[in-house]
Design a protein around this nucleic acid. Structure first.
Lengths: 142, 142
DNA sequence: AACTGTAATTAGAATAATTCTTGATATCGG
DNA sequence: CCGATATCAAGAATTATTCTAATTACAGTT
């Protein structure tokens, strides 16, 4: 029996503080989980994985920690059609492609040199604070 | 006292059937509400407006009708950060700019000749079925 | 090390949007 | 008109998330 789980990404030492946020044990573990396996887990999936190392952690704490990490710009919250929120440690501007067949979410980058504001007719005076690009579709063999 | 409500858009006769969907009285009214005032209402806001003409309508029916209209491609469901879904009769490819100060949602078009697939590095073989572009920010006077 | 104030965590209750269930109504084709 | 099917209505149920209140951990100070 060979494990099905994807290879975990190497996780660097997580500092005591990131972006002004004190990294408690719980926040460290949750951040580690997101870096180790970048498959856009839901809060509940993070919770289940966190219990391996923090058996007493509660789902409320997972929500609190994810919220704190999002508020401090350490991770991003990704929403897709009213499904549960998912969380993503990839901070550079990118979108998400949801493969309807597998449920897998792929990060999608802009082509080099292109920014979203360049291609949209924004209302005059619009200052963008946050962008979310979501694509739904399927992957066909070619 | 002068009314604050925006001028309603003229609504054409709504046919008995659109895109293979039988347009019952309730579906017609709900569709009319979305066309008349294109301010991206929630299901509950549609419900409140629908009661003017259909006093017995239920919120469940509003949800049923909106779902039927969405499924048949007659309107679009718009989601923003796990807030209530909003509904939009504008079918051509466009995004939404949420003004954080006012809560108003503005439709945002692509600049002429540009399509989203042109600017993204999609995974090989990706076939896009649906796109959602959401911007959050504010409008500054210039 | 004990003390104090603040922040974080926990468990469970509460909330809110949406969906589901069931029975009643309406509509369509014959 | 009659039966089949689709739609609607009311309220219960579901689910993700947030809130509340009590406990615990931590940092800085004595």
């Amino acid at each position: 029996m060979v494990s099905n789980a994807p290879e975990p990404n190497p996780v660097p030492e997580i500092p005591e503080e990131i972006a002004g946020l004190r990294m408690t044990r719980q926040r460290q573990e949750i951040y580690r989980i997101l870096i180790e396996q970048r498959n856009h887990p839901t809060a509940n999936e993070v919770f289940m994985r966190a219990k391996d190392r923090l058996p007493n952690i509660s789902l409320a704490t997972v929500y609190n920690c994810l919220e704190a990490l999002v508020q401090h710009g350490i991770i991003r919250q990704v929403n897709f059609e009213r499904e549960s929120s998912r969380y993503c440690p990839n901070l550079h501007e990118h979108g998400h492609f949801h493969d309807a067949a597998t449920g897998i979410i792929h990060d999608v980058d802009f082509k080099p040199g292109i920014s979203l504001a360049d291609v949209l007719n924004l209302p005059p005076g619009a200052v963008i604070q946050d962008v979310e690009i979501t694509l739904r579709g399927k992957l066909v063999s070619q």
